[in-house]
Design a protein around this nucleic acid. Structure first.
Lengths: 195, 195
DNA sequence: GTCTATACACCGATAGAC
DNA sequence: GTCTATCGGTGTATAGAC
């Protein structure tokens, strides 16, 4: 309890509206647009009310990011529950809308220690989740041992993030061929039927 | 000529110092740190001098980015001139320092039209350069046609960028295994000796 | 070329009335 | 809970003296 100012409750309509506004601005204009006045305007509120629900802008930012990472982890768990978890994960992760947000938060991690820690924690959880579900389920298309669940996860995450983000920017060169390669690899690695 | 203010020459020590300062700040603190006062302080100059060498902050930013993309394209050409262009390109691109800057500029592209256009142009040039050099030189490790020069280029670029950026953030989980996978693929795709 | 002085909008944050 | 009023600081940019 280092606070002296009054703070609003966790479950409030306006609080949620502020979190939504952060995410929308992050997507559309990037983190540089995240001023208190800007966020509140987007939420249709007077900007001073922001400081009633969140002590600082950093607190608001972190709360929005946490909500986002938790939601993504949930959706990943759902995808992994299917009979073709690798296919499902790829479909989820290569979505351009999500990728744009992911990259923006990654860039923000570069100069905000709280966000950096959250990014690291999220990445670690995601890796464990996906690689854990994939472990022992991958068909080895080649004689080599390099295609571990973790290595495949990292590669899918990387290619999906970049392709998705470029799509959000309107850049499409080489995407069709890259996606064909990923699709081929995913098909090779994961049997059509449940193992 | 829409300018009315006096502008400094292209080849000036202080002009270069400002471009260097932009790149350093971009790397270390992200694009939000790119204010005129901040950049000039980093360059050891009074901030008003910035507006003598660059009409606007956007002009400075774009000049710094152009200098960067040109330099990277040159280094890519050098790497591609070796007997193992795929290996050389991977070594160059997976460098964490470079990757951090790449991601930061990509995020910036999301809400700055001039930067977005430059990113698109740079990406297109790079793809043509790498894929062109690789065309016809890839050993096909499998019977499938998905491993085109362009698809392989896109995959390497994506994995290198994400791994490198995560490294810059101090995140290392899964990297060793992902790199082993990439190394294996690169070895499979490119003969040890010149073709 | 480089300086001081200045303009004006926006920044996060707080105090205190209601 | 939400408002008005206010704070000191920083943002880009310009004018004009030297």
């Amino acid at each position: 309890m280092a606070t002296k100012r009054r703070m609003g409750p966790e479950n409030a309509v306006k609080r949620t509206a502020l979190l939504d506004a952060v995410e929308a601005l992050m997507r559309e204009e990037g983190y540089a647009a995240l001023s208190a006045r800007n966020v509140a305007k987007r939420a249709g509120l007077k900007y001073q009310i922001l400081f009633y629900y969140f002590e600082t802008m950093d607190d608001l930012l972190l709360a929005a990011y946490r909500r986002r990472t938790e939601s993504v982890l949930e959706r990943i768990e759902e995808a992994l529950a299917s009979s073709q978890p690798l296919h499902a994960f790829w479909e989820l992760w290569s979505d351009p809308e999500g990728a744009a947000l992911t990259i923006e938060y990654m860039a923000l991690s570069n100069h905000n220690e709280m966000v950096r820690a959250e990014t690291a924690a999220f990445g670690e959880q995601m890796r464990q989740l996906v690689a854990g579900r994939l472990a022992g389920r991958l068909r080895q298309p080649v004689e080599d041992q390099a295609f571990t669940a973790l290595a495949v996860t990292m590669s899918l995450v990387s290619v999906g993030a970049i392709l998705g983000f470029e799509s959000a920017l309107g850049i499409e060169g080489g995407h069709k061929e890259a996606e064909a390669l990923v699709d081929w690899c995913v098909d090779q690695l994961e049997s059509p039927a449940a193992a």
